[in-house]
Design a protein around this nucleic acid. Structure first.
Lengths: 346, 346
DNA sequence: TCATGTCATGTAACCGGTTACATGATGGTT
DNA sequence: AACCATCATGTAACCGGTTACATGACATGA
């Protein structure tokens, strides 16, 4: 392995000069710089990252804590983050938190033990308090979540608005009996989406039926479960607002099994959330809420880089707004919901 | 930051002794060890990863080069790899190659510049030759690909068999005119899957119609394209074997648009590949080829750890076998294919 | 002419570990 | 008693960079 000393010897200068040339922003005589660069070229020199980190106390790496690696849009998110970071010569270290407070904390400890310069945190297990505390110990940007007291280091999306949009959409289609299938209410985003649902119902002057709110686990199985539950209740539900596409998909699958003869939006209008890439290939194609994931990822990296450079945090808006993708899974409200006990198909 | 010297002072021993206690496998007097451990505990000491790496020339990190972060099963794969590595206190550094030889090479250079102890390489842009060469320069385990000359450092799956299984399945259902929609044939796995298709056709004594082999790009758009193409040709195709679920999904969507009245397997039997988690929620649910991704990921890590420890490579079999998941998208061959020009729906 | 400032460059301490080798204590053998 | 092996521990060189400070060359103004 060629070291900085080899290069210095080859170029006939001191190691300090080589270091300065590598760094780039320190004034060096043009002729000297050229000689050093020639030597670097000739010896195919690449600085030792460890030595550099040890001396400068910076790792040139940022950690990414992902609550659940298989989660929606994670791949899109990570791809964008990786690309943006690499452009700045930062490496990306990934750790998974498995949506569990203890494991997320452990993952952060791990990343911190690896001396990341900063961490992008997508945690849904940790409490706000824990995040605030940890943010004091390391350079942190929080993704997909708004934490009070961590202004300027959160990139989030208005989940309340997402839930609102989804619900208002079916209301506008004439639905009055609308169920809501949420993700685990221990998660902030699930709570906000539900809040949006509540608000939309209230704004439309519709009664809130607490029995029509079902807490799921964000997996497709919950969709099936929700349908079965709503069916036993035989409440006159005509639309379902789901907390994510996965559960919406599960619900639709179950409906197709139970009511093979009925076209789906006629049986039940279903709205998803996340706009996963399969959403437009389901049958019927899924109306869902779309988030600008790539933009959010870029914003997170920008925020992080600003923190790392130590300058003023860029004053840009890091709150994003979801949009509704209207597709076939939602349609006009029928006179009678499929779940209504008076319906002949029962 | 507390250093090893602080701990040494606190415990009244030398830094070497502390280092030995940290290492674990060197004999240290029990009483001394206890004192050191108490000091570590008391000072909440965590060794500086850079210093350690610099001195020992090991990074305790492995890189993961992913050709395409959004690709099938990547999240499952990564989740498993991350968990297995972390258990051994290795960190995971991710770089994306974007399915392009140059960018993959660049990503490897990057990971190597960060001094990873080893790299797990999922590359589909690089040539075998390039991989063989690079494998000489760094500790490498190749994922999802069998490279001649790199025995014992590849974890792969028998794509030929996968293609064979998919094709034989529809043949057994009575289909005789079977199209094949492949991924980019510049990719090894796409070529092998096609090879399996060919073999199955041949084994069944069916004629090979080269016009029924279409090269796609692994995106859903290719599915649509393939259907449109087959339709103009009006060849009497009754089944389609696709190179992945994405394309199969695209094809089915297109079919549903074109022939809204016909149930899908009657119009065309479709087989996918990858068994993505949405496969069983499409309508009809998608018959597809399943790979034991988690097992493969664990095997890759095991192989890597063996290389890192420097011991003998474990003699286990790193070739995996795919299985067919039979679902609704395939059915008995109709008398007349939907693409047959004599059909009345045209 | 000499003090002073500017600029490019060199010297060497430092980051915080690992580890080869030195040291010294202990106990067994002849 | 002298010798040697064994074992736990300490000393200090080393890994390969960064950077504060020193140095020396040259230009400027009094």
């Amino acid at each position: 392995m060629t070291t900085i000393r080899d290069v210095a010897a080859q170029a006939g200068v001191s190691v300090a000069t080589v270091s300065r040339v590598m760094k780039g922003d320190v004034p060096v005589n043009d002729e000297t710089r050229a000689r050093v660069q020639a030597a670097i070229e000739m010896l195919d020199y690449a600085p030792n990252a460890f030595a550099r980190s040890l001396a400068s106390n910076r790792s040139q790496g940022v950690g990414l804590l992902i609550s659940h690696l298989g989660g929606p849009f994670m791949s899109r998110f990570m791809a964008t983050v990786e690309e943006a970071l690499r452009r700045s010569d930062y490496s990306l270290m990934v750790a998974a938190g498995h949506s569990d407070a203890t494991r997320e904390r452990e993952a952060l400890r791990f990343l911190s033990s690896k001396r990341c310069d900063g961490v992008l945190v997508h945690a849904d297990g940790l409490e706000d308090d824990a995040l605030r505390m940890l943010a004091g110990q390391m350079n942190m940007v929080v993704i997909n979540r708004q934490v009070q007291g961590l202004a300027g280091q959160c990139v989030y999306i208005d989940n309340r608005r997402g839930g609102y949009l989804a619900t208002r959409h079916v209301i506008e289609l004439g639905h009055r009996h609308i169920a809501c299938l949420t993700g685990p209410l221990s998660k902030q985003d699930a709570r906000w989406r539900l809040e949006g649902y509540r608000q939309a119902m209230q704004d439309a002057g519709l009664p809130l039926d607490e029995a029509a709110i079902i807490e799921g686990d964000s997996q497709d199985g919950s969709g099936r479960y929700a349908i079965d539950l709503l069916r036993t209740r035989k409440s006159p539900i005509t639309a379902l607002v789901a907390g994510n596409d996965e559960m919406a998909m599960g619900a639709m699958s179950r409906l197709k099994v139970l009511y093979p003869g009925i076209r789906l939006p006629d049986a039940l209008s279903v709205v998803g959330y996340d706009d996963e890439h399969y959403a437009c290939h389901l049958a019927p194609t899924l109306t869902t809420v779309h988030a600008p994931v790539e933009e959010m990822a870029r914003a997170a990296v920008t925020l992080m880089e600003a923190r790392l450079k130590g300058g003023e945090p860029p004053g840009f808006e890091s709150g994003f707004t979801p949009t509704l993708m209207t597709r076939e899974s939602t349609g006009p409200a029928p006179d009678q919901g499929v779940f209504c006990s008076t319906r002949s198909t029962f």
